[in-house]
């Protein structure tokens, strides 16, 4: 069995079979992270370049740990202090990186489509670790794994994605992937943060989160992306929190077995109240743990990909 794709650029490219293989491999690799010696030799001698041209803690660390647990050598490149800041074009940088014979390129960039561009320019598999406001496929896969582990199924679940849909690549990847796997997905948030045309994905849109919470099996809260000047899309953080934040009051209407996801980093007290983020329904830290397993699975599966 192998993946039908050579790169992980968009969840659109993944078949249901691919997702099943990725999740099965990830679940069987979880055990490695629980050992006292957290390392297996499978990717010994492989070089994985982590090119994060946009700040990241969780995702970069997650990829680095995943690579190291499989004995690959992970090398970090960031835009600050790299030749990009000296005027080299991105494609030249990519060609130079490729000349060092990496086995996988992991790319995050503030501009949508950069991982796709690089995948055409270089010879090795490319993983999109988040491109602009477009996609974040590995996040959607780890969310899928997190939901599946608790709910035991995806098909038929109602998943509510709430908040800043407009700037969120996590939202787009999740909408496509969850719909593909048979879930019902609803969106909710302020009208200014619902992108035009999003309804063509077959997702109902709500401007009042109280309408979507009672029937949700999974609530996925999104971060207000203040680095993308998201707070100019509503009058004040306080008002946002009052109308679109998840707190004790809104949770009163939720199902007893609802689970809450958040891709992090959390703006405590803005989109989610601290007692909910740390509460019994929250799977926020499980998402982080599962993220390492999903990325281990992807690195393993892509290292065997034929040209």
């Amino acid at each position: 069995m192998s993946l039908s794709v050579r790169h992980i650029l968009s969840v659109n490219d993944l078949t249901k079979k691919d997702c099943a293989l990725i999740l099965k491999t990830a679940q069987n690799m979880e055990e490695i992270s629980e050992r006292s010696v957290k390392k297996v030799p499978i990717l010994r001698g492989k070089t994985i370049l982590l090119c994060f041209f946009e700040p990241s803690t969780r995702t970069r660390t997650s990829f680095e740990i995943a690579a190291k647990r499989l004995s690959a050598d992970a090398v970090n490149i960031s835009s600050v202090g790299s030749s990009l800041s000296k005027g080299e074009t991105l494609l030249d940088t990519a060609k130079n990186l490729e000349a060092m014979n990496p086995d996988i390129l992991v790319v995050r960039h503030a501009q949508s489509g950069i991982p796709h561009l690089l995948a055409q320019a270089v010879d090795c598999p490319v993983i999109n670790a988040g491109d602009g406001m477009h996609e974040h496929p590995t996040q959607a896969l780890l969310d899928l794994m997190t939901i599946l582990k608790v709910k035991k199924r995806i098909a038929g679940l109602h998943i509510a994605i709430i908040g800043d849909i407009l700037h969120s690549r996590v939202a787009l990847s999740n909408i496509i992937l969850l719909k593909k796997m048979g879930a019902k997905v609803s969106l909710a948030g302020p009208a200014s943060m619902i992108p035009l045309g999003i309804e063509q994905f077959g997702v109902p849109i709500f401007y009042d989160i109280r309408k979507v919470i009672p029937s949700a099996d999974v609530i996925m809260m999104l971060r207000i992306q203040r680095e993308r000047e998201a707070d100019s899309f509503f009058p004040s953080l306080r008002e946002y929190s009052r109308f679109f934040g998840l707190n004790k009051e809104t949770m009163k209407h939720a199902k007893k077995d609802v689970v809450i996801l958040h891709p992090g980093p959390v703006n405590r007290g803005v989109e989610i109240a601290p007692e909910i983020a740390d509460g019994e329904h929250s799977l926020i830290l499980d998402q982080v743990t599962n993220g390492v397993a999903v990325r281990m699975a992807l690195l393993y599966l892509l290292c065997g990909a034929k040209k």
Partner: peptide
């Protein structure tokens, strides 16, 4: 080997 072997649980 032509394909990555499937990883099972230890």
């Amino acid at each position: 080997v032509a394909e990555q072997p499937i990883i099972h649980k230890t």
